[in-house]
């Protein structure tokens, strides 16, 4: 059995991460290069602890089975479906090649959905991260009462996204809702769910409202683990609070920001379905996001091939954004 000859008494052995990071960055890119580099570092610091490889197999098997059966197989099947035009919910089908993909971009309704999804998602991602970061920064000014604010601000998070949609639907209801009764003295009574722009505004608002708490708990956790010395050094330097935030705090928070960018993208693309469905995608398809179109095409309009093509488009978008964000991150992210 291989053993490390490095039992340096009571002093804690150096953590594996930093020693791997300390080496000058090589010019290799891509996921594979990263994993190879990582493997090499791992072999140095973590020689095989156990030699019975069959045990590793048994430990990985449950995860592998679930991922293959419920993710990889459906993924392959989605690729297959996207090449067919189907009827009677898949009972009959006709091979059409890439026709479904062409339809996603050539049919005006579908193209509208793509653009709509891009705009609404951008607003939701930017809004929920920006507001959470602002709140976390305000709460960390050593002003007291932070615990109370944090406790109250996570309440929306405890409501399921769908139920948030229900609450907003009722709140903005022209007849029984609170908002229009407040607007009555001003003499305006908007029909929130008949005007496309207003309905989109409420959709974006409800999604941001529901998500800020999630981003906030990560930012406050990250804030509490910022290295005190670095922050205090900046204080001694006499930097203004604004400079301190953008030059010291924000770069230190960037791993979390990056993580939240990826998770918020997934939220805006997929979890947003719940609220879009409560608004019936309307009025005039104004809140019909791509994921809602996929649901309708697959389970209402019996166009599974088109829905599969739209799914793959979303998959590519998620993949591309994830890679892009990780790549951006490697340039700018500061790891402690």
């Amino acid at each position: 059995m291989t053993k490390v000859e490095q039992r340096s008494g009571p002093a804690p052995s150096p953590a594996p991460g930093p020693s791997a990071d300390a080496r000058p960055p090589r010019r290799t890119h891509g996921l594979r290069a990263r994993i190879e580099r990582f493997d090499a570092a791992l072999a140095e610091t973590h020689p095989a602890t156990f030699r019975r490889r069959s045990a590793a197999l048994w430990m990985l098997l449950p995860t592998a089975v679930v991922l293959v059966v419920f993710l990889y197989v459906p993924m392959a099947r989605t690729f297959e479906l996207s090449l067919y035009r189907t009827a009677i919910f898949g009972q009959q089908r006709l091979f059409v090649g890439l026709e479904n993909f062409a339809r996603v971009f050539t049919s005006p309704e579908s193209l509208d959905a793509v653009v709509r999804t891009a705009i609404i998602s951008t607003l939701v991602i930017g809004g929920s991260i920006g507001i959470a970061l602002l709140l976390a920064a305000l709460m960390n000014q050593r002003i007291g009462g932070t615990r109370i604010y944090r406790l109250l601000l996570v309440w929306p998070l405890a409501l399921s996204t769908a139920i948030s949609g229900v609450v907003f639907r009722v709140m903005f209801d022209p007849n029984v809702g609170l908002i229009n009764s407040w607007l009555e003295p001003l003499g305006i009574q908007p029909e929130w769910f008949r005007d496309p722009t207003l309905a989109q505004g409420i959709l974006v608002m409800a999604l941001i409202w529901n998500r800020v708490g999630f981003n906030l708990i990560f930012y406050t956790a990250a804030y509490q683990n910022l290295p005190r010395e670095t922050l205090e050094a900046a204080l001694v330097d006499g930097a203004t609070p604004w400079q301190r935030f953008w030059r010291v705090t924000f770069p230190l928070l960037s791993p979390i920001t990056l993580f939240l960018l990826v998770t918020s993208t997934i939220f805006a693309f997929f979890d947003a379905f719940a609220i879009a469905a409560i608004f019936d995608g309307g009025p005039l398809n104004a809140t019909s996001l791509l994921i809602y179109e996929i649901y309708e095409n697959a389970f209402v309009f019996d166009a599974r091939g088109l829905a599969a093509a739209q799914s793959l488009l979303l998959f590519l978008a998620v993949g591309a954004l994830t890679v892009l964000q990780l790549r951006q991150g490697r340039k700018r992210v500061v790891y402690q």
Binding site: I35, L71, V73, R77, T78, L81, Y295, A298, A307, S311
Partner: peptide, 25 residues
């Protein structure tokens, strides 16, 4: 390394994207 990459790759596959095929499975 390959196994780990295959696990990580599923980060990009939210169930919702596969909903039609998941229903079939």
């Amino acid at each position: 390394g390959v196994a780990f990459t295959l696990v990580l790759f599923t980060l990009m596959m939210p169930t919702e994207v596969l909903i039609i095929a998941l229903f079939d499975v």
